[in-house]
């Protein structure tokens, strides 16, 4: 009997851990994108002239983006966390069908972000090209793997 209870407890454990980790993973993803968006917003605003160019602030935003994309984001796309499993998510199930391509798209974002903190220094005109490179990486992944809101 004790053995059976212990077995049942052990068998039920991974399920609970899994359920928690799915929600944690989705929240963590959203937090990641929120931080990315705050810093992208700074750079895009400066590129458009809606925010006054400030070299230190631009460089800080660039450094933040470089730091963010150092994180292993694809690892947060755990099994059972697509839009089909959880209504909080906009992650298309295609991510799990093409994990290599999804990882490659994130790798593209990393390449686009490399050196951003330096590249945005030296004048407002240097911000636009960085935003375009980063934005193109955002778009490439959104087009394939992100469900637009309805």
């Amino acid at each position: 009997m004790k053995i059976l209870l212990a077995a049942a407890a052990i068998m039920s454990m991974p399920v609970i851990v899994h359920a928690q980790s799915v929600e944690d993973a989705i929240e963590a993803r959203h937090g990641f994108y929120k931080m990315l968006s705050i810093n992208m917003g700074t750079l895009a605003g400066m590129a458009k002239g809606e925010i006054e160019y400030d070299e230190a602030a631009a460089s800080r935003a660039g450094a933040n983006i470089e730091a963010l994309v150092g994180y292993d984001l694809p690892s947060l796309f755990v099994e059972g966390s697509s839009m089909d499993d959880n209504m909080e998510s906009a992650a298309k199930p295609e991510i799990w069908d093409n994990p290599d391509d999804f990882a490659a798209k994130f790798e593209d974002l990393r390449s686009a972000a490399a050196g951003a903190s330096d590249a945005v220094m030296g004048g407002q005109e240097n911000v636009g090209p960085v935003v375009q490179k980063l934005g193109a990486a955002c778009k490439a992944c959104h087009d394939e793997y992100r469900q637009p809101e309805t």
């Binding site: 968006s37 992208m40 917003g41 750079l43 895009a44 935003v131 375009q132 980063l134 934005g135 193109a136 955002c138 778009k139 959104h142 637009p148």
Partner: peptide
């Protein structure tokens, strides 16, 4: 706003 900062 596709949230890509380039095509808003």
């Amino acid at each position: 706003d596709p949230e890509d900062y380039i095509n808003v």
